[in-house]
Design a binder for these strands. Structure first.
Lengths: 327, 327
DNA sequence: GGTCACTATGACAACGTTGTCTCCACCCGG
DNA sequence: CCGGGTGGAGACAACGTTGTCATAGTGACC
């Protein structure tokens, strides 16, 4: 900036005035300054500006499990859209379902003085966030609640959705329904399992633990589970996939199976409607999730001090075929 | 920081020493300072630190068409992985295939003094980048080259891949092959069309313009194209989808068609192997694309001044079924 | 006991901006 | 001709850090 000032023959303050469109600069002076800026390729340093003005940095942080997972990338997109409408930019990070990494990312974002943080938490302990939140960094939890603090949270109706899935299958005659979930440490996985139990109860199906498998989904694990649960005289006739990752692995494992069970997936995914049979899913609006969370975050950024809110978004079953086959 | 200093009864410089793990601080003093930091929830302001040290900000910018598109989110993930290994964080933005938005994002990233920028360019004019690059912000173009400047670029072999697709279909007896591409303003779309022509020539197929359609893919446009190209006496017996978006819309349009043409998609996509028939694709390693681009960027960040490089990554045809049906 | 090396600490300036205050020149009305 | 208002511009401090240099204290050695 001082280079620009020297070249234009003015003080740096005048350059500052020009780049900030402040009035009270003579048009001729402004033009000289602009020319100097152009010539030198000057670009104002936003970091210094924010420091001096004590203003916000114009950034928010978003932490998900994996930005490459279509579910989270859709979330990312929705968040970005709102952030842009508020003139903010988005720092993203993948926690890889690792609570240490989550913590590291959050604290680094705080050190960068982001205006707020959206997080799909990996861990269950969020005490480390208390000083940051007290210091004025709003945090909104997405898809899973905070572990041991009260904070703004936006969830989907995991319980209701899974109950609906069980009911749907029961209505089509299934009594032996398997549930393949993710690691029970994950809130949504545990909650959906709870919904599965509750669904069994409500439909007069005896809950059979041997039909349940809860692990981080890998092709191997899902393949084994399929073998175990879907073969033999007492095999399950239907299966619920606890999330989109499980569903994809499950579909691959079932591709060459002789008998295909009825299937419902929690989470919709691209091309589910084009498979054979098309996959019945419990769908929820991921964009709406990101949208709601980001809107909530920005209301906090703008000073909303009301008590922490908990928003639960609805889900709905989309019957496409795979869930409507008879036992 | 001065609050911490006051509470611990030391100077701010000593606090600085403690948070930077500098030696020559008495253990007792350090402990007092740490306690004060803990009590006040102090977190060092990275912006101020970077300003003072004149060091890099520890961030890079990534601009793609749409962070929600699985193709770009996989790229995002690969970039993030490299960035993390270099201790950097990633600012992301979606250009929405709009060159003004691209420019806006780039310039804002520059104002934030990112250490480097990775961009899938939307526009064809990048003169605006010259001052920024001269000022020391390295830029690497991904998937598409820069419009009117020379710069580091990482591409995939669009030409070769499409030639291979045509050859594959020709080898299975197809002579009337349709090509459904994206808008010809997009480099990859134009290049793949060029590959299509070249592939026709090499396989002794007369290039028939009426079998080509180049537009931004929407369900309507693809549906119309399917009607036009795949029906009637002179219909195409095979079709090449110019990218993953086109492929998805095409599959949906074909789902209820009576005669299904042979099909090859440029770009692999999730579940392509589970469709009926499984979709033959020209696959390329999106992670490798992000990886190579990020590695190149960081070599520039670390001072590599060699002439701009152009990297072209190989593609390979994955025969799964849809491309092997006879006319 | 004086010099020396070394440890632990602080004062101060500077990074690139911008807010505040001040200053000067000019114009207007009386 | 003077007082007051206004438009245009600069000097200076401050944002929260850290690099540089200075200083005071402590042993150790000859």
């Amino acid at each position: 900036m001082s280079d620009v000032a020297r070249l234009a023959g003015v003080s740096i303050k005048t350059v500052s005035r020009v780049v900030n469109d402040e009035p009270a600069v003579h048009p001729d002076t402004a033009e000289r300054v602009m020319a100097a800026i152009e010539q030198l390729g000057f670009r104002r340093n936003l970091g210094a500006r924010n420091l001096r003005r004590g203003s916000t940095t114009g950034t928010i942080g978003l932490i998900v499990e994996d930005v490459g997972n279509p579910f989270y990338s859709e979330l990312n997109r929705a968040v970005e859209r709102i952030a842009t409408s508020f003139g903010r930019q988005v720092l993203t990070g993948s926690s890889e379902e690792n609570s240490d990494r989550e913590r590291e990312l959050v604290l680094e974002f705080c050190a960068r003085r982001v205006d707020g943080i959206l997080v799909v938490p990996a861990g269950l302990q969020h005490g480390y966030l208390v000083p940051e939140m007290r210091a004025g960094t709003p945090v909104v939890f997405i898809d899973r609640p905070a572990g041991d603090i009260v904070a703004d949270t936006v969830l989907v109706d995991n319980l209701g959705g899974t109950i609906e899935a069980v009911t749907h299958l029961a209505r089509h005659g299934h009594r032996r329904i398997a549930f393949l979930g993710d690691s029970p440490d994950i809130f949504t996985a545990a909650e959906r399992l709870r919904g599965f139990r509750e669904g069994c109860v409500r439909n007069g199906i005896s809950y059979d633990e041997s039909l349940v498998s809860m692990r981080t989904p890998t092709p191997e694990y899902i393949g084994d589970a399929v073998q175990r649960l879907l073969e033999g005289p007492d095999a399950a006739t239907a299966v619920i996939a606890g999330n989109n990752r499980v569903a994809v692995h499950l579909l691959r494992a079932l591709a060459h199976a002789e008998r295909r069970p009825a299937m419902v997936s929690f989470d919709d995914f691209e091309l589910a409607d084009l498979l054979d049979p098309p996959v019945t899913v419990v769908a929820h609006d991921v964009s709406a999730l990101g949208h709601a969370a980001a809107e909530l975050l920005f209301s906090r950024v703008q000073g909303d001090q009301s008590p922490p809110r908990k928003v639960v978004l609805p889900v709905h079953l989309v019957a496409r075929g795979s869930g409507e086959v008879a036992p």
